[in-house]
Nucleic acid binder design. Structure first.
Lengths: 226, 226
DNA sequence: CTCAAAATGTTGTAAAAACAACACAATTTA
DNA sequence: TAAATTGTGTTGTTTTTACAACATTTTGAG
């Protein structure tokens, strides 16, 4: 089957065989599309009909509010999914943009078919639904994690909490983050120059070190000053 | 069945008949418990085994971080559920407190039994699972909504966004919110006195009016100054 | 009804953030 | 490879916030 190698790597279809996938392809009205970097895959406000699964490359999810302020919701790597929540909630329109951050291969599925298993043909569909729920719960945890960050009362605390968390996830004091400084400022909802100032201060104090998207955090020094 | 009147009112068990509920009661290891105002129903850090459904009264979900700062995650009314996400994610311990805000009647269910339908006896269990997923997706939307608030760059914007949203939900310019000023400050992650100052300013400008938990917002005046 | 506890509004001060403007570095692309 | 664009750090100014302290009001328990 076309692109099965990539499909197999994703969380949603991990346990699905090529044969079962073949059967599901028709049922889910699967299509594939290639996007160039910075292409808009989905526009905020357009009718929500599909679920998008990143097979190769990456994309970012953004929201533009009524005042025109942009906030990055999250970044999706290969295996990332866009549009499930709105599928389950029944939202009529996408409330976010999905934008390719690299040249990407995307699998597009009919959202209605995806979340409503048809017992007849594709018998493994229920496994996919279970995986989808798990994915939503994971996203939920991410959102709570981000809320925890944004609840911190100043930029320094936000940055440290973010870096500490990334370090924990990486299981190492040295790690890479997916954002450049400008994007990190957006993610943390702080002013870019203010973030830059705080980062420089933390570096000067020897608590963190960084170069591009590569960071180091000295856990022992975190709580000395506070 | 005991307390069936209240159970029937909840979203998770809305479509379940008394007979089916009876069958499920055993399967889910259902227990009932009464709590007094300010009782801790669930402690952060204790082993996560159950899902809690508020049948009467209300509760709040709080998180205490490593520095001792408290943040209210959300408030639950009758029908509200605590602990589903951790059930699906498989988290070993509760990461939040659940505290009764009134004298409350709570239904306690085994989380493992709840999310894994047993085809044999309780045949309506799959409906409950569907409702649970819907609930998780709703919570997801709430979290995103709260993130949208916390992403605003100052207290004034946060307050206005919050009140505007509450007004929209109520479908009226006059509405009640579930928080007192102290709680609202926690919810918005801002200093209480700073919030108080901003609220007073907005009142003075004629943009909002309030008394206790009752608010009024003049939508026409919102965007004049910004 | 009374009294203690909690909530609220206000004010002054110090700290932090947003904002704007700029120089320079890095990256992209034509 | 050169030119244009984007990213980054810095600095000064203005605005906003956190914090602390206090007086007053409201609430709730007994």
């Amino acid at each position: 089957m076309e692109n099965f190698l990539e499909i197999k790597k994703t969380k949603i279809f991990a346990e699905i065989s090529e044969n079962d996938m073949q059967a599901m392809a028709y049922c889910l009205k699967i299509k594939f599309a290639n996007y160039n970097k910075n292409d808009t895959i989905v526009s905020q406000g357009t009718p929500a009909e599909n679920v998008y699964l990143i097979l190769k490359g990456g994309a970012k999810v953004e929201n533009i509010d009524s005042r025109g302020d942009i906030s990055i919701i999250t970044k999706l790597k290969a295996g990332g999914v866009f549009g499930i929540e709105s599928s389950y909630s029944g939202e009529e329109e996408y409330s976010e943009y999905l934008i390719a951050t690299e040249n990407s291969l995307v699998m597009i599925m009919n959202r209605h078919r995806l979340i409503n298993p048809c017992q007849n043909k594709c018998k493994r569909h229920d496994i996919v639904v279970k995986n989808l729920v798990k994915l939503i719960v994971e996203r939920n945890a991410e959102l709570i994690e981000k809320l925890r960050l944004l609840s911190k009362k100043n930029t320094r605390e936000k940055v440290l909490a973010y870096l500490y968390r990334q370090s924990s996830l990486a299981g190492a004091a040295y790690f890479d983050i997916p954002y450049n400084k400008t994007e990190l400022a957006n993610y943390l909802s702080v002013d870019r120059s203010a973030l830059s100032t705080v980062l420089s201060k933390l570096k000067e104090e020897g608590i963190i070190d960084f170069d591009k998207k590569h960071y180091h955090i000295d856990i022992n020094k975190i709580n000395i000053n506070k």
